[in-house]
């Protein structure tokens, strides 16, 4: 555990809490992609099945349980409690185009051909693209509420901090996982365009609006 990793995890947690609070306080999930949230729930479920088999640390176990609980909580708020506010007309990204290639790739490129390892690998590949329905939704409507952009910024920061964590671990000559690193870099790149807009617009008090 190093400072980048810890800040990355906290940033991830912050993103999830921002999203839950936004939905809860406004009693609305307008502008949020239920499809991305559904993909994140699949990601956590596939990856954290190791809760039953391996123990790494109390921190690790608690965070996994929190991520699982909050991701299902978000789905509950979006698809049941505040379903009437869900903007499904703009949430049209075909998630099978993400899930099926992630399954295929996990079966082809993995470190060990076991059920638990392939599920882990699948979750890594799927996480790297799970935000696409949300970014697609923002690009389709051409704008995002500030709170939605704060959510995306916290989520992107988590990925960027994980890269710093790997660089740090590299110099500590710790073991690193190539699959996680490649997928993590891909995932971070997806946020670059958004980061640019966030830094140049949202932080200056403007609404995130895409150039026409």
């Amino acid at each position: 555990m190093n400072i980048f990793r810890l800040l990355g995890d906290l940033s991830h947690l912050l993103a999830i809490i921002i999203l839950l609070l936004k939905i809860w306080n406004s009693r609305s999930c307008a502008g949020i992609s239920g499809r991305s949230q559904f993909l994140f729930a699949i990601v956590f479920t596939a990856r954290y099945l190791d809760l039953f088999f391996t123990f790494i640390s109390l921190y690790n176990t608690v965070m996994k349980i929190v991520f699982l609980a909050t991701s299902y909580g978000t789905l509950y708020l979006m698809y049941i409690k505040f379903k009437a506010t869900y903007d499904s007309n703009h949430d049209t990204f075909r998630i099978e185009f993400l899930i099926l290639p992630a399954i295929a790739l996990a079966l082809l490129i993995n470190e060990e051909f076991t059920v638990i390892e392939i599920l882990w690998t699948f979750s890594i590949y799927l996480e790297s693209v799970a935000i696409l329905p949300q970014l697609f939704m923002v690009s389709k409507t051409g704008e995002a509420e500030s709170i939605t952009s704060h959510y995306l910024f916290a989520l992107g920061s988590y990925r960027a901090l994980y890269i710093l964590n790997w660089i740090y671990r590299w110099f500590l000559t710790e073991k690193l996982n190539a699959i996680a690193i490649v997928a993590g870099i891909v995932q971070t790149i997806l946020y670059c365009d958004f980061f640019y807009l966030y830094l140049t617009k949202v932080l200056k008090g403007k609404k995130l609006q895409l150039p026409a």
Binding site: I56, N60, Y162, L176
Partner: peptide, 10 residues
Amino acid sequence: RLKSTTHDEL
């Protein structure tokens, strides 16, 4: 160094 790690990250 780039393989066979325990999955210690979230």
